[in-house]
Nucleic acid binder design. Sequence first.
DNA 1: GGATATTGCTCAGTATGCTGACTATCAGTA
DNA 2: TACTGATAGTCAGCATACTGAGCAATATCC
Lengths: 154, 154
Amino acid sequence: MKDNNDMPGHLARRFQQIAVAVFLAEVGDAGFDLTPVQYAALATIKANPGLDQVTLAGLIAYDRTTITGVIDRLVQKGLAERRASSRDRRARELEITDEGRRTLRKITPAVESAQRIMLRGLSAKEGEDLMRLLHKAIAAGNELSRAPLREVQA
Amino acid sequence: MKDNNDMPGHLARRFQQIAVAVFLAEVGDAGFDLTPVQYAALATIKANPGLDQVTLAGLIAYDRTTITGVIDRLVQKGLAERRASSRDRRARELEITDEGRRTLRKITPAVESAQRIMLRGLSAKEGEDLMRLLHKAIAAGNELSRAPLREVQA
DNA sequence: GGATATTGCTCAGTATGCTGACTATCAGTA
DNA sequence: TACTGATAGTCAGCATACTGAGCAATATCC
C-alpha cells in the first residue's frame, strides 16, 4: 500500500502546517499577534487601497465567506477599516490604518525570516525550484477550488 | 514590495487548498463522503491495527486534539472502532471495521485520481521533483510544528 | 511505597476554509 | 418601468488545526 507520505496531498498539508507554525512563531517572537492569513490580507489592502472584499478575496484566493471574519479581526485590532462604498451600496471599501501600516513595516523582518526557515532544509536552488513547481501546479489547478486567484481587471 | 504569491508560505496554503478541493471532488463524485484527513487516518488505522490515538496522530502528523474529532467522525460513520486498551487504561485502541475496509478499497481509485489531478500542470519528472523537495523541506521542519511526524518505535 | 513527573485523552476557545442559503443591491433587458 | 439575473456581503453549520487547561492513569525516582 502506498504510504500517505508519498501522496502530494498529504505533503501539501504537512508543508502548510509547518509554514503556519513557523510564521506564527517568528511573528509572535517579534511581539505581534497576526496570522499568515491576516498578514496577506493586510498587505494586499495596503497595496490596493479602497478595494472591496470580493476583489481582496480574489487577489489572495480566499473564499468570500472566509474573508468576512478575517477583516472583522483586522478591524477589531485597529489595523484596517471597512466602510460603505459610495459607488455600490452592496460593497465595502477597505483601507489600511496608520497602525496597520506601522505593524506591516515592523513585522516584515519576522515574515521574511519565517519564509527562510520554512525552506531551511533546501539549498537556494532547491528553494527556487520548489517555488517554481508549486507555482506551476497551482496555476494549473487554480479553477479547482471554490476560491480561485483572480487578477485585478484594469 | 514582495508579492504574496512569491512567498513559500502563501504557495503552501494555496497548494493545500487546491489539493483538498480536488480530493473532495473526486471522492464525492465516486459517491463517498470522506475528507483527506479522515482518509489518511483510516488508511493508517488499517495498516496499524490496534494502535492508540497518540501513535496514530504521530504517524500522520496530526495534533492530538485534532485526532479526537477525526476519530469521532470515523466511528460515527461506522468505519472505525475505538475501544479501551487492556494494557493502558488511558489509551484507546483503534480498529478499522469491515465497512471501513470496504470503503477504503472502493475509494482508492478516486484518491489516486485526485493525486494525479493536483499535479496535472506538471510533467512526471516535475511531479517527482516537487514531491522530493516537499519531502526534504518537511523533514527539515518536522519539529517546528506542534504535531510533528513520529515513527513507530519497534 | 509514596511523591513526582509524564502520558493519553478530552474539552473550551479561537481561526481558517468550506457549503449552502439568504438579503440587499445592481445591471441588463423586454 | 418591471422582470430577470448576477453580484457583494453575511450567516449558520461543519471540519480541520491550534493553545492551553484539566483529568485519569502510568512511570519514575527517592
